[in-house]
Amino acid sequence: MISLRIDGRLIKAEEGERVLQIAIREGIDIPHLCYHEAFEEPYGSCRLCIVELKEGGSSRITTSCTLMAREGMEIKTDTPEVIKHRKLLLELYLAQAPLSNNIKKLAERYGIKGTRFHKTLNLEDPLGGKCILCGLCIRACREIIKASAIGYIGRGEATRINTPFLEENPDCIGCGSCANICPTEAISFEDRDKRRIMRSWSNTQVNLKICKLCGHPFTPEPLWLKVKEKSTYTPSEEIEEVCPNCRIKIVSKRLVKPYSL
């Protein structure tokens, strides 16, 4: 164990633990968009979690998600310098994602109502106006779901996120983890009839599994297969292809009906 100071508070931590993680655990608020506890390695793309690090007589500004804790570190999360850069970054985000309410709310917390920068809205990009390219959706799809259905396209200011060649991608299992993890609610999909349509991902269509009892679609079929394959728990045949609602009915019936009868 080592000890470091964040905003004056003495905190114990494991050596090498990332400072942002420590701060979150300790209830110290550092804004961040591209960090998520689901991932072991930090990504460092949003830059909002910058802090001032004082160590050995010198100080510098660095991102706390990538910063590994060392004995005697002194961290300040809201110096005027840090706030200044964070505000400017938020202005850049406001120009990039003018349609995102989450970005607006975050900016308002720092007293920013508008941006001095030119707003861009790429109407051809289904994520345009909301996506800030933090990469969480790509990482979730690749590292956690292991589907790698989406990725970055292009580079520099032309960067966007979608399926390869903007074509429907059969690798997508329709799990929606991308939409779930997105900090700016940029990703959308809808369930229509027996299909899930990933509107953000080149309208990739995924079949939905139909409940064998009530006939209603209840989950993307490839996701259902993946869970079945990965899970160590084998449900009884009776409930395996049944939607959650019908399952509840079956299980509750079982509970009220004693086995002996």
Partner: peptide, 21 residues
Amino acid sequence: TSEESCGKCAPCREGLKQMLN
């Protein structure tokens, strides 16, 4: 540099674009 920015981090990608503007 704006064109050659990889596009990963916001200050470089968005900042240089705005700077050029």
